[in-house]
Design a protein around this nucleic acid. Structure first.
Length: 113
DNA sequence: AACATGACCATTA
DNA sequence: GTAATGGCCATGT
Protein backbone atom coordinates (compact mmCIF):
# COMPACT_ATOMS: atom_id res chain seq x y z
CA UNK A 1 0.00 0.00 0.00
CA UNK A 2 1.12 3.52 -0.70
CA UNK A 3 4.00 2.64 -2.95
CA UNK A 4 3.22 5.13 -5.67
CA UNK A 5 5.63 7.99 -5.88
CA UNK A 6 2.86 10.52 -6.05
CA UNK A 7 1.27 9.18 -2.90
CA UNK A 8 4.29 10.28 -0.90
CA UNK A 9 3.08 13.85 -0.95
CA UNK A 10 -0.44 12.65 -0.22
CA UNK A 11 0.83 10.91 2.90
CA UNK A 12 2.50 14.11 3.98
CA UNK A 13 -0.72 16.01 3.50
CA UNK A 14 -2.70 13.37 5.41
CA UNK A 15 -0.45 13.71 8.43
CA UNK A 16 -0.37 17.49 8.32
CA UNK A 17 -4.16 17.41 8.48
CA UNK A 18 -3.92 15.56 11.79
CA UNK A 19 -2.02 18.35 13.53
CA UNK A 20 -4.53 19.82 15.99
CA UNK A 21 -5.40 23.44 16.54
CA UNK A 22 -2.87 25.21 18.74
CA UNK A 23 -0.08 22.71 18.08
CA UNK A 24 2.83 22.67 15.67
CA UNK A 25 4.98 20.01 14.03
CA UNK A 26 8.35 20.08 12.32
CA UNK A 27 9.05 19.11 8.73
CA UNK A 28 11.22 16.23 9.86
CA UNK A 29 8.51 15.04 12.21
CA UNK A 30 6.02 14.83 9.35
CA UNK A 31 8.52 12.94 7.23
CA UNK A 32 9.28 10.49 10.02
CA UNK A 33 5.61 9.86 10.82
CA UNK A 34 4.98 9.20 7.14
CA UNK A 35 7.76 6.65 7.11
CA UNK A 36 10.26 8.76 5.19
CA UNK A 37 12.89 9.60 7.77
CA UNK A 38 15.45 12.06 6.51
CA UNK A 39 13.28 13.47 3.76
CA UNK A 40 12.19 16.59 5.57
CA UNK A 41 13.05 18.65 2.53
CA UNK A 42 10.40 16.88 0.54
CA UNK A 43 7.81 17.86 3.11
CA UNK A 44 8.69 21.50 2.62
CA UNK A 45 8.54 21.00 -1.11
CA UNK A 46 5.13 19.37 -0.85
CA UNK A 47 3.77 22.11 1.36
CA UNK A 48 4.96 24.70 -1.12
CA UNK A 49 2.42 23.24 -3.53
CA UNK A 50 -0.47 22.67 -1.13
CA UNK A 51 -3.52 21.85 -3.28
CA UNK A 52 -6.36 22.66 -0.90
CA UNK A 53 -7.32 24.83 2.03
CA UNK A 54 -8.04 21.83 4.22
CA UNK A 55 -4.36 21.44 4.98
CA UNK A 56 -3.07 23.44 7.97
CA UNK A 57 0.31 24.13 6.37
CA UNK A 58 0.90 26.99 8.78
CA UNK A 59 1.31 24.55 11.69
CA UNK A 60 4.51 23.19 10.19
CA UNK A 61 7.74 24.89 11.22
CA UNK A 62 11.39 23.89 11.19
CA UNK A 63 13.24 21.95 13.88
CA UNK A 64 14.61 25.14 15.37
CA UNK A 65 11.12 26.31 16.23
CA UNK A 66 11.22 29.06 13.65
CA UNK A 67 9.25 29.85 10.52
CA UNK A 68 11.15 28.88 7.41
CA UNK A 69 9.19 31.01 4.98
CA UNK A 70 10.40 34.46 4.11
CA UNK A 71 8.16 37.25 5.27
CA UNK A 72 7.31 38.12 1.69
CA UNK A 73 6.43 34.55 0.81
CA UNK A 74 3.84 34.29 3.54
CA UNK A 75 5.85 33.98 6.71
CA UNK A 76 4.01 36.96 8.12
CA UNK A 77 0.70 35.29 7.33
CA UNK A 78 1.84 32.05 8.92
CA UNK A 79 2.96 33.80 12.07
CA UNK A 80 -0.31 35.65 12.35
CA UNK A 81 -2.30 32.44 12.00
CA UNK A 82 -0.21 30.71 14.66
CA UNK A 83 -0.62 33.60 17.05
CA UNK A 84 -4.32 33.48 16.34
CA UNK A 85 -4.29 29.89 17.63
CA UNK A 86 -2.70 30.99 20.89
CA UNK A 87 0.91 30.19 20.10
CA UNK A 88 3.43 32.58 21.62
CA UNK A 89 6.60 33.69 19.85
CA UNK A 90 9.71 34.61 21.78
CA UNK A 91 11.67 37.78 21.16
CA UNK A 92 13.82 35.92 18.67
CA UNK A 93 10.74 34.75 16.74
CA UNK A 94 11.08 31.26 18.17
CA UNK A 95 8.24 28.92 19.17
CA UNK A 96 8.76 26.68 22.20
CA UNK A 97 8.62 23.17 20.80
CA UNK A 98 8.69 21.85 24.33
CA UNK A 99 5.31 23.44 24.84
CA UNK A 100 3.60 23.40 21.46
CA UNK A 101 5.00 20.46 19.50
CA UNK A 102 2.37 17.95 18.49
CA UNK A 103 2.85 14.47 19.95
CA UNK A 104 0.72 11.76 18.31
CA UNK A 105 -1.19 9.77 20.89
CA UNK A 106 -1.15 6.49 19.01
CA UNK A 107 1.92 4.74 17.72
CA UNK A 108 1.71 1.81 15.31
CA UNK A 109 4.50 -0.25 16.84
CA UNK A 110 5.51 1.33 20.11
CA UNK A 111 3.22 1.67 23.11
CA UNK A 112 4.41 4.86 24.70
CA UNK A 113 1.43 5.32 26.92
C1' DA B 1 20.89 13.27 -18.97
C1' DA B 2 23.41 16.71 -15.94
C1' DC B 3 23.17 20.60 -12.96
C1' DA B 4 21.31 23.86 -9.69
C1' DT B 5 17.84 25.09 -6.37
C1' DG B 6 14.99 24.45 -2.32
C1' DA B 7 8.95 26.22 3.18
C1' DC B 8 14.89 20.81 5.95
C1' DC B 9 17.70 17.98 9.49
C1' DA B 10 21.40 15.88 12.33
C1' DT B 11 25.97 16.24 13.45
C1' DT B 12 30.11 18.60 14.44
C1' DA B 13 33.18 22.39 15.78
C1' DG C 1 24.07 30.23 21.38
C1' DT C 2 25.84 30.28 15.94
C1' DA C 3 28.05 28.38 11.54
C1' DA C 4 29.47 25.06 8.39
C1' DT C 5 28.97 20.27 6.23
C1' DG C 6 26.86 16.21 4.31
C1' DG C 7 22.70 13.96 3.25
C1' DC C 8 17.93 13.68 1.29
C1' DC C 9 15.30 13.87 -3.32
C1' DA C 10 11.51 16.32 -6.33
C1' DT C 11 11.41 20.12 -9.91
C1' DG C 12 12.88 23.15 -13.47
C1' DT C 13 16.12 24.42 -16.98
Amino acid sequence: MGSDKQSKWQEFYAIVKQVPHGKVASYGQIATLAGYYGQARQVGYALHAVPSDDIPWHRIINAQGKISLNLEMGGAVQRKMLEDEGIIFSEAEVISLKKYQWVPQIDPEDNQI
